[in-house]
Nucleic acid binder design. Sequence first.
DNA 1: AGCTAGCGACGTCAACCACA
DNA 2: TGTGGTTGACGTCGCTAGCT
Length: 315
Amino acid sequence: MPGFGGKQLEMDGSIDDKSEDSPSSSGSSQPQNLSTVVHTITAVPTAIPNQPVQVQSVIQPTQQSVIQAAGQIQTVQVEEDGEGHLVRTDPDIEKRREILSRRPSYRKILNELSSAEAPGIAKIEEDKEEEAAITSIQTTIPSYVQTSAGQTIQIAAANQNELTTQGLQTITMTNAGQGAVTAAAMPAGTTIVQYTQGDGSQQFVTVPVSISPAGEVQAYQIRAPSSLPAGVVMATPTGITSPQQLAEESARKRELRLMKNRYKNREAARECRRRKKEYVKCLETRVAVLEQQNKTLIEELKSLKELYCHKAETE
DNA sequence: AGCTAGCGACGTCAACCACA
DNA sequence: TGTGGTTGACGTCGCTAGCT
């Protein structure tokens, strides 16, 4: 499906829906079978009147239908518009329908949704929370990392206030021998350290490695420039002068840029999948509503036929 | 218990597109 | 034209259910 997210999502406008992105849907533990669309629609109530005069009331306004999709139970409010179309009327559905009908891209949708009250998909607020979390992470060092030399080191913040208020921090690295995660191979003398915090978030630190065999403490300045994504910090030794050091610095920056790109793309892919899942859920719900509408129309047709036959017999 | 297929989630790369 | 965002494709991993 090329241009999946950037293209206009075509909705016919008569029936639309965006199912709520429930918290459970983003969890990995929930069994999902989205590729197999099996909707069991229990219309409550689907009172099909025998009298033609009641045909217009086949679906009562704001009646609820229970849609069971892939093991999930959703309560859907269904309402008939003036033209016999079934329309979902959940309060948030109205808003989301409008959003979907002009959906230019998932990102835009999410931003718009985030400005609304929908808490589960508040992209912007999530970012803010993430930023806050990163700040917290940066101040909750020590963390344990492993260098490319196979050493496990502990990064300990000497002064948390200094880190947060000035963005500049001297960290100490000591051999700890536990909690290692990963480290990227770098030019001689440098290492990009990737480590995972307790909450699963990741940090990157480029570290000129010159740890003594005894694991001597070495001080670096650690900073979080604005050009780097959240969670990426740079540790640079002071006083780089020689061409070799400049080359190393250049290679280090290049590696950091690549890592930054991977990091961002990783996040982007995660978001993309989340939006795609929501999109699929939306389509599934729409299918369910359309099936319901189709069923109603068939019943309506049947009733009209009976009325017509009965009328023909009496004449 | 061990094996295997199916599935979902993830990370990465590459291609495409919009925009400054 | 460079850059960033988005998403399809691919490979991998972990989990689970079914089978032997």
